[in-house]
Design a protein around this nucleic acid. Sequence first.
RNA 1: UGGGGAGUCGCCAAGUUGGUUAAGGCACUGGGUUUUGAUCCCAGCAUCCGAAGGUUCGAGUCCUUCCUCCUCAGCCA
Length: 599
Amino acid sequence: MASEKTPTPLGSNFIRAIVDKDLEQGVYQSRKWAGSPGDAAHQAAGQPDAAKIRTRFPPEPNGYLHIGHAKSIFLNFGLARDYAGVCHLRFDDTNPEKESQEYVDSITDAVKWLGFSWENGQESNLYFASNYFDFMYRAAESLIENGHAYVDSQTPEEMRITRGTLTEAGKNSPWRDRTVAENLTLFREMRDGKHADGSLILRTKIDMASPNINLRDPAIYRVRRAHHHNTGDKWCIYPMYTFAHPIEDALEQITHSICTLEFEDQRPFYDWLLERLAEAGLLAHPLPKQYEFARLNLTYVVLSKRKLIQLVEEKHVSGWDDPRLPTLAGARRRGYVAEGFKLFTDRIGVSKADSWIEYTILEDCMREVLNEGSERRIAVLDPIKLVIDNYPLDSNGKSQVEDCFAPNHPLKPELGKRVVPLTRELWIEREDFMEVPSKGFFRLVPDGLVRLRYGYVVKCTGCEKDANGNVTVVHCEYLPDTKSGTPGSDSIKVKGNIHWVSVTHAYECEVRLYDRLFKEAHPGQGHTEDGRDRDFLTDLNPNSVTVITAQLEPSLKDAKAEDSFQFERHGYFVADIKDSVAGTPVFNRTVTLRDAWQK
RNA sequence: UGGGGAGUCGCCAAGUUGGUUAAGGCACUGGGUUUUGAUCCCAGCAUCCGAAGGUUCGAGUCCUUCCUCCUCAGCCA
């Protein structure tokens, strides 16, 4: 029998393959869930977990989320959604010195904005690693009791030296053989504040000669007197990521713990730790498993937290939500939409290969969803006056005002039309007129015909110039029988089609035109002429924002913050969420339209 | 020069246990529609899977060697 080849489902990736296999083999069938995170005893009292899988998105609240995090969010929450599972939002807040509530709030906002929720029925799967400090402490004592951990009195410098190098084995610490009782006493003293910051450290006892440096007795608990945003001053010892993260996953009954490639070397320790705690009866099988994927690299963008912080603190941008920043807060303000990020993450896939995604992929995704959902409006960004000399005046010598009808969306007639008033004097785009046309230019030229979009065909009769020879006013005459929507509209075919706004009706408005923040595809990559690493700041684009005064069609005055429009022939623009006031919105250019015309 | 990873079209990326014509998207190139030089539609776009050998009736998929890139020596995450 010929087997039919089933087409590869869209978005297939190696992690989905793993989940498929695990589900098929029932690897996690015996899992129980007591309704909240907890140790083996706690979960054993619960019900079989209704969630087929549990994933988690575990940011450290020490900065704003960026586009790279969006990839991880869509991966983790998307997996949970597609496999009838649950995804937890967990703050990995084990280092009190760098974390704050401001970041916690910005992160929850961003995840919600992307369209995800950690609510699952009555349950809220929003957790803090710091809420597990009691268990972590217990786990550490258990390790000590079973001879798997010891308190080291070496200085950080001594530890660095005895750790060895990439090619040489390390040496055992002179304190490695302290008795269990001695270790327990010292660790409790650490907890009780009897030792100075940095004087003592708890380490697991594994193998100082391991070729994997992460297994050379990694440090798991340090003494640090710092105020924690969640636990206050309760603790003066804090667990380290290496130790804390596997435990967080296990307590939350996570099945698939997905992180980026740089943690691959950490996986043996992840498994080692969990097995030791399972042996001690603190945790139960099946234990969570860690999988790694390649982090996102985007051309013309920096995504390292350190660099983003620097851009904000040194005020190269206006703040974390500067529309030029790749933060989710910035992208939102720029007018990027959640649906566009979903398209983007679907499009770039998930793999273990290091890659650089072209920034235009992201822009195309935004264009694609914005094109579908945005109503059209007319805006003249670089205005020059066009006078229709033969347009009728009334008895007072004022221009006639005529209604023209512009569809709100060319592909969606059901969205209706709106009125745009036509008068004798209009604003048109400066670049739509050329006294001496370049090759292929088919807009306004002397003696040429062009259609005033949704209005009449006009014939250019000339222009006025100032002393410097710059065009100040363009003149034309209209052909009365050619109005759009009338039988005569097709009597004359013209190729050019330009947009306009009535001078007497226009809404004069501030518009910000954004360009890429960096002028190099790989900011800061490579070396200077004298062989040093290049500073990414030298690649900053000095013209990443231009603020202009544009002439918009009158209806735009009513736009509310975050309303998105396509300004015809220009691109997508959003009413700024911060600076728009009711009745006087200001706009940010999200992204331009594609422009195939080679000028 | 230790360990752990990755190398499939310009950019991403599918390729189940080897099975015959190497998915798909983006980009690009033609052509069509169009009152946005937009959108949309249609067509084209890897004899080849980092390289070289080998096993096999058959290899991107197995073996060997080699090359390139990423990553690990915080009491950060």
